Simulated assay, not measured.
Amino acid sequence: MESPEVIAEPLTRAPQFTIRLSSTRRGARLARCLVAQQLAAWGVPYGTDASYAACIVTAELAANAITHGRIPGRDFRLSVLRFPGLARIEVTDPRPERLPPTTVPAEPRSPEADSGRGLLLVASCAERWGCEVRDVCAKTVWAEVACPW
Score class of each variant (00 low, 15 high):
78 L>Y: 07
90 E>A: 15
88 R>M: 11
107 E>H: 15
61 L>N: 12
71 I>Q: 05
103 T>D: 14
89 I>N: 04
99 L>P: 09
90 E>H: 12
66 I>G: 05
90 E>I: 06
73 G>D: 06
108 P>F: 11
83 F>I: 03
85 G>T: 03
111 P>A: 15
98 R>V: 14
103 T>P: 04
101 P>R: 07
74 R>W: 02
81 L>W: 05
75 D>I: 00
77 R>E: 07
71 I>H: 05
88 R>L: 05
77 R>Q: 12
98 R>L: 07
95 R>M: 13
93 D>S: 06
78 L>Q: 08
71 I>D: 07
82 R>Q: 08
78 L>K: 09
94 P>I: 01
101 P>C: 06
110 S>N: 14
110 S>G: 12
90 E>F: 05
62 A>R: 05
71 I>M: 04
77 R>L: 04
71 I>P: 02
87 A>G: 14
104 V>N: 10
74 R>Y: 02
81 L>G: 06
68 H>D: 02
94 P>E: 11
95 R>F: 03
64 N>I: 10
65 A>N: 06
83 F>E: 07
106 A>D: 15
81 L>E: 01
95 R>D: 07
94 P>R: 09
82 R>H: 06
94 P>H: 06
110 S>R: 15
83 F>G: 10
98 R>F: 04
107 E>P: 06
76 F>I: 04
106 A>M: 10
92 T>Y: 03
69 G>I: 00
63 A>M: 10
107 E>L: 13
99 L>T: 15
99 L>G: 08
109 R>L: 12
95 R>Y: 02
76 F>T: 01
101 P>T: 09
98 R>N: 11
67 T>A: 08
82 R>I: 07
96 P>F: 03
105 P>R: 05
80 V>G: 00
80 V>L: 04
110 S>K: 13
100 P>K: 10
61 L>H: 12
83 F>D: 05
77 R>H: 04
91 V>E: 01
108 P>S: 11
87 A>K: 14
95 R>H: 09
77 R>N: 01
109 R>E: 14
98 R>T: 13
76 F>K: 01
73 G>R: 05
104 V>F: 11
66 I>C: 06
75 D>W: 02
80 V>A: 01
63 A>G: 15
90 E>T: 08
94 P>A: 09
64 N>R: 09
76 F>A: 01
84 P>R: 09
102 T>S: 08
69 G>C: 03
72 P>N: 04
86 L>K: 15
94 P>Q: 13
67 T>R: 09
102 T>G: 12
62 A>Q: 11
73 G>L: 07
71 I>Y: 03
66 I>K: 03
96 P>W: 02
73 G>Q: 08
102 T>K: 10
83 F>T: 09
100 P>E: 14
75 D>P: 08
94 P>M: 08
66 I>W: 02
69 G>A: 09
97 E>V: 06
89 I>C: 10
106 A>R: 14
94 P>D: 10
64 N>T: 14
111 P>L: 13
78 L>E: 02
65 A>M: 08
74 R>G: 00
110 S>F: 15
69 G>K: 02
64 N>G: 04
81 L>Y: 11
71 I>V: 10
74 R>V: 00
86 L>Q: 15
76 F>R: 04
75 D>T: 01
64 N>S: 11
67 T>N: 11
85 G>W: 12
